[in-house]
Design a protein around this nucleic acid. Structure first.
Lengths: 351, 351
DNA sequence: TTGAAAGCGATACCAA
DNA sequence: TTGGTATCGCTTTCAA
């Protein structure tokens, strides 16, 4: 009862009003506006004009209820704050929006236990499909939520158990990290540290890449692996641990952009000069990292493309459901000043 | 007709099935499950048990259609790829999710002309409210879309015309930039460059802050303003232009985190040492910027809080509509090594 | 080619 | 306190 506004609120016109104004049946309006075949030209015109005149836009809710499709996609994201994920989301959104789909975003903020709940919420909202970038691969609650929902699904950079029946968009971490490891070995490093996150596909691939690089160089497997939960703190602590070893690594590969800040902190505390005293490679680009002196060598990938492909895969499945697919996208190593030949003195144990 | 799966797909139970199983009326089921008063204990139990047994979850679409509320909020975002915005979104999402609202995200990817369209889409999807972080303040199409939608609205860091009737969550840029400018003036800088974005509130406030700082120091207004569209390229070009002036600035304030990378690029090309040859302040935190040597002085704010407040404001308006509100959140200057006393030789014109 | 009418799955009024 | 029923706005058979 707002007496403030004398003009009656412009009630939204419904299909009924349009039909009435056009002097036709309600069904015809529906047909015209949803572009169905078998409508006369005259009818089309009348309806279109009436709709225009009433400024009619169909009620998406009612449409969805009948059609059993919401034209919306859920994106379950572990941490939108990470620019890597933000780029992926952005890529996905652009493709989805272009196809008339809206994106429902949930954010776990690094709390894996929220993923399952978010999946449930999205399923209740009847999204047509799901894009998933979970923190874990084996969280029971998450898997349970996925199995019971049984909707078209694309996971990014994760391999879930087969019975979940997910499409995948994966980055070929083996490629880029392998190149990085070989570059380091080439420069004489024989003690490489690898700081990684939890046991998910990217982590496993990165470890495999380093191991195989050592094999290719016929080098004793003297690499060191630090696992943990990707974060600045993990980067800091793991780096500190590695440097405190009796036989510390001469180079480190960071398996995640979240680690760089922490690692750099320790390196600068120890007054190590990158590229001379110590070599560093980071996986995934970080803003400003190439403006550092020296610039940080990085394993790159096209994040936007990752998101786009995920969306395309999903749309494809919605369009014509078929067996789950897998897309593998490359990563590549960009060597920069932070990598240099091993400092001779540090290449052997401090006996 | 998937012959693969012999077990019939678990058809979703509706309220009807629940009512039937519980042997009660459909209306009672609704009452119980939506927690309405005036239901007997016995009824509650029977319904709850039946619902449980059928694994019933209400159809959100049907609910929304009737209730005329979707429990969803639209977020129109100019560029989710910017960590600043990602943090804001993340803050908003957490508050909204906790209140049972879902977030529909659209991303303009820096194309202001998409904002209006996105607002329309979200309105058609009947979101209960909108959070808006548009690139522009005066885009005709955007304003038109907002006016005709007339739904509860919160804009972040923008002031739209009054007739749009938007709630606001603003950062007090004047505060932090003022402190930064005074710190520079204090160190003897009299020629300060200010690189900013388009004509939106933050830009105006930053300019005002610098002007007033000069006034406070009784200094001639010899500051320089470079406007443009926030981007790495703008940072680069504007910085190059400033340094090429006959009487170049001895310090620059960057009015946006997108500018830092470009500005630093030019500074390092010119072989200027920050804090000694040249002073630099950036508005909004950038990853790694405090690990630079020297660390970049920054005008800080709490991005997550910004998003949270926006969501809270919106929820408050949905709960009990009242006059539009405005929230002002602080920014503050963190002085770091990139600022130093002016290099005497550069403090006057190169006659 | 067109229109009447039966749902989609809930909510809410009204009568019992 | 409960249940029947109209309704939300649309899609989609079915007959005409």
């Amino acid at each position: 009862m707002s007496s403030k506004n004398e003009i009656p609120v412009n009630e939204r016109a419904g299909i009924r009003q349009v039909a009435e104004l056009a002097g036709v049946g309600i069904a015809s309006v529906s047909r015209v506006l949803s572009g169905q075949p078998g409508v006369s030209k005259k009818m089309t015109e009348r309806v279109l004009q009436a709709a225009e005149q009433l400024n009619y836009t169909p009620n998406v809710l009612a449409q969805s209820l009948r059609r059993r499709s919401t034209k919306s996609i859920g994106f379950v994201c572990s941490d939108i704050t990470n620019p890597l994920l933000a780029s992926i989301v952005s890529g996905a959104e652009s493709v989805l929006a272009a196809a008339g789909y809206s994106l429902l975003l949930t954010n776990s903020g690094g709390m894996p236990e929220m993923d399952a709940e978010h999946i449930d919420v999205l399923q209740q909202r009847q999204v047509d499909g799901l894009i998933l970038l979970p923190s874990l691969e084996n969280d029971a609650a998450t898997l349970h939520a996925l199995r019971k929902s049984a909707m078209p699904l694309v996971v990014i950079d994760r391999t879930l158990p087969d019975d979940v029946n997910a499409n995948r968009v994966l980055s070929d971490h083996y490629l880029g990290v392998g190149a990085a490891a070989r570059a380091l070995l080439q420069q004489g490093h024989r003690r490489i540290g690898l700081i990684v996150g939890r046991d998910v596909r990217p982590t496993r691939e990165r470890i495999r890449a380093v191991r195989d690089a050592y094999l290719a160089y016929d080098a004793a497997p003297d690499y060191l692996i630090e696992t943990g939960i990707l974060s600045i703190g993990h980067g800091e602590r793991a780096m500190a641990r590695l440097l405190a070893l009796p036989w510390p690594p001469t180079a480190v590969i960071l398996g995640g952009n979240q680690l760089l800040e922490g690692a750099l902190k320790i390196i600068s505390q120890r007054k190590l000069t990158l590229g001379r005293d110590f070599s560093l490679v980071c996986c995934d680009d970080v803003a400003l990292s190439r403006l550092f002196s020296p610039p940080i060598a990085t394993v790159m990938r096209d994040n936007i493309l990752l998101g786009k492909r995920a969306a395309q895969l999903l749309l494809g499945q919605l369009d014509s459901p078929h067996e789950s697919e897998e897309v593998l996208l490359p990563t590549w190593f960009e060597n920069r000043g932070s990598c240099g030949p091993v400092a001779p003195a540090r290449n052997t144990p401090d006996v």
